[in-house]
Design a protein around this nucleic acid. Structure first.
Lengths: 225, 225
DNA sequence: TCTAATAAATGAATGCTGTTCATTTACATC
DNA sequence: GATGTAAATGAACAGCATTCATTTATTAGA
């Protein structure tokens, strides 16, 4: 009585003969949706549809949509470039990591409110990145008590900067309020855009180079305290 | 025939004799809802109810919920402490402003994705703050082209840090993955919490002091270029 | 001053959202 | 072989932002 279902056929109710879903498949499908149409398109219904499954089936594998976002988060963390740690000096390695981190999250800003509040427990890839970072700080002679605050400070700057990239280019056009705010209006016009030409990149470069220099001076101040 | 409606009475359809709503009333009611129950409680229905109005009435004054958030944003900007600008030296003034800014947005993190992408056109209070900041930078001898990138860098750090404050205290507990990530696990334990005792405050202090020092060095590097 | 346009309210309706629940079927264990 | 659990369907739900037709008051123009 077994009917070999054609690919377009409808799956009957009841547990299927072989598993249809898994966390891995859900994660991959979610990422595909996000890449195709951004986070607005990532709905539980759309996700289910793309997996050819009823929406309620997802809840056998994840507890909530937030859960899906956590899966996505721990996956995309692996695309951050940490290759400079161990091969290049501290400042250069931090520089490469930070730019890469920002670029990844520029395409995933809706994850930032999730990740920022998420315990790393269980997020294995994320923890791995922190371990690599910590090793690099210690190798560079950082006092252990400063490592975590320094990483958090860098991450905060990166997350904030990722939002900034998504802002429209004319975000600082003061419009009819220009005359009431002359200094700012002029500063916006004369803004140094650097080589790339993007205001967001210029601000990120300035802030990152500043942070790198400044954090090192904080490190030295701690040692001399 | 005019009936003086008792306070509990039902308003009939049609334009009322005197205006019930205004952007100011909507903004105030939204803020009250947020303070009472956070952003989850800020729904168009709840907002309407708190103003004793039908939800659809709101749309005569704002185009969308996003619009309401913009109103809220430009209002809370005024609660940021800019009093140190003009009275204190650059670094001290930036320090006071930055801590205040972070504290305000810690209670309003859902606004960050909104504000970060929002053109300042029409957001008068926000523009005013930027004007004040610009003046302080120029008075301190900053080259005009660096002012906006420096402000943006500081703001990015502040926004990211605001998220960080809302994170649970045990966010870095690595759990069963502790043995696989020994350096990070140890660094978390030995983390310097500073006077206040909060990890978020320690990271913000370190990053902010670093940024202040580092941005100044970038400023000098620009001058000597 | 009459009239037409506009502003500002109601109330019903819409489509989408994440999520839950009863039900069905397959598989694993005792 | 019975019993419990895992994993699917499909119907249902409440809540969400938003839209629309309708009603009434006010304002502007002839």
């Amino acid at each position: 009585m077994a009917v070999e279902a054609a690919s377009g056929a409808h799956r009957p109710a009841g547990r299927p003969t072989q598993k249809v879903l898994s966390k891995e498949r859900i994660t991959a499908a979610a990422l595909k949706l996000i890449e195709a149409g951004g986070y607005e398109r990532l709905t539980m219904s759309a996700l289910a549809k793309s997996l050819q499954v009823a929406p309620s089936a997802l809840y056998n594998h994840v507890a909530s949509k937030q859960d899906v976002l956590v899966l996505v988060q721990d996956d995309i963390i692996t695309s951050i470039d940490v290759s400079a740690f161990g091969t290049e000096p501290w400042a250069a390695a931090i520089r490469r990591w930070a730019w890469s981190y920002r670029d990844v999250f520029t395409r995933h800003t809706p994850l930032i409110p999730v990740i920022a509040v998420l315990p790393v427990t269980g997020a294995g890839q994320t923890l791995g990145m922190y371990e690599t970072l910590t090793a690099a700080f210690l190798d560079d002679g950082w006092p252990e008590p400063l490592v975590v605050p320094a990483i958090v400070a860098l991450e905060s700057f990166i997350f904030g900067s990722a939002f900034d990239v998504t802002a429209p280019a004319d975000i600082f056009e003061s419009g009819e309020l220009a005359e009431a705010n002359p200094k700012f209006t002029s500063a916006v016009r004369s803004q140094d855009l650097g080589a790339g030409g993007s205001a967001a990149d210029a601000a990120f470069r300035l802030g990152l180079e500043g942070l790198i220099v400044g954090l090192q001076s904080q490190r030295d101040a701690w040692a001399a305290r």
